[in-house]
Simulated scan of single mutants.
Amino acid sequence: MFRAMPRPRSTGAGRLSVDDWIQNGYAIVAEAGLAALKVDRLCDRLGVTKGSFYWHFDDMRAYRAALVAEWGRMRDEDRRRLDEMADLPPRERLSQMMSELVSTRHWTMERAMREWARSDDAVAAGVRAADRALVAGVRRALLDGGFDEEDADLRANAIFAAGVGFIHLSGPTPSARQAARRERFLDLMLRR
């Protein structure tokens, strides 16, 4: 069972921010699936009336579009951070990439978007594009670490697949034990 996200803080004067709504939407999808994402459930979770929802969003379609847009924004930010890591030694780069993938920031959103992608072709296309970019970044680190093309490709896909698995095995707050296991896995993948 997943732990619910804590109630959001208001942005002042008792008002919720758009981000409060977005983060709680991801949490509902991650915990209970896309079918559970309803205005009533969101309002109950946040302790507010439907009027608050409609203050921020025209309807559920606009709300879902905001969820997808925020995920895309985060993925763009992730790509920029990946580019900034290019000068790090390959082992350190891969470790940071894995840690970010299972961070509290990503855990709920990644689970939610992967769940959503099962029933929405546009979201699935976005997830696949983000996945390809991440695999390419892992592959580049492995090539920089001296692996040949074939080994880098095989290992990049294995590391990526394990990373997605780590998301599902971890909770919303990463533990030191999980981090140690990820590092041990990375050591195994970097052996020649």
Rank of each mutant, 00 (worst) to 15 (best):
G33R: 01
F185T: 07
Y54A: 11
G47S: 10
R79F: 08
S52Y: 03
G51S: 10
A180T: 10
R114S: 04
R75C: 04
L34A: 06
S103T: 04
I167L: 04
D76T: 12
R7I: 02
Q178G: 05
R7Y: 13
R45C: 00
L188A: 06
R192S: 13
F166D: 04
A13N: 13
D20L: 03
A35P: 03
L34K: 07
R91C: 14
G12V: 08
S119L: 05
P172C: 02
R111M: 10
D148T: 04
E149H: 08
A30F: 06
M113S: 00
E77P: 07
F166S: 10
M5N: 09
D83C: 11
N24D: 00
H56L: 11
R93V: 02
A176Y: 07
E149L: 03
R182I: 13
R105Q: 14
A86N: 15
R155P: 07
S95L: 15
W71K: 05
M98I: 15
A125D: 03
V127N: 06
M60K: 01
D44N: 03
E77K: 08
L94C: 05
R91T: 15
D40E: 02
R7T: 08
G171W: 08
Q96W: 13
A176G: 06
L154K: 06
R192C: 12
D131R: 04
G72H: 09
P90D: 03
H106K: 01
R64G: 02
F185L: 12
D151C: 15
A179E: 15
T11W: 06
M85R: 15
R155W: 02
R181G: 10
Q96K: 15
Q23W: 02
L46R: 00
A27Y: 01
D40C: 00
A180I: 06
Q96P: 11
R81N: 12
L101V: 11
D20Y: 03
S99Q: 13
G163P: 09
A124I: 01
R15A: 09
K38S: 00
I159Q: 09
G12T: 11
R81D: 08
A152C: 03
A124P: 02
V39E: 00
T104H: 14
V39I: 09
R81S: 10
A117M: 09
K38P: 00
R73V: 14
D58H: 09
A136N: 05
P6Y: 11
L16G: 01
V135K: 11
R155D: 10
T11L: 03
G51W: 11
F2G: 01
E149S: 09
L46M: 07
M97I: 13
A4G: 04
Y26Q: 01
S175W: 02
D19N: 15
D153Y: 06
D144E: 12
D187L: 07
W107Q: 03
L34F: 13
L82E: 11
R41L: 00
A69P: 12
G33T: 04
L134Y: 09
A30P: 05
A136K: 06
E92F: 04
M98T: 12
S170R: 07
A152D: 02
A36N: 00
Y63C: 10
V135S: 05
L34C: 12
S119T: 04
R155G: 01
A162H: 14
P174H: 08
V29I: 13
A13Q: 12
M97N: 07
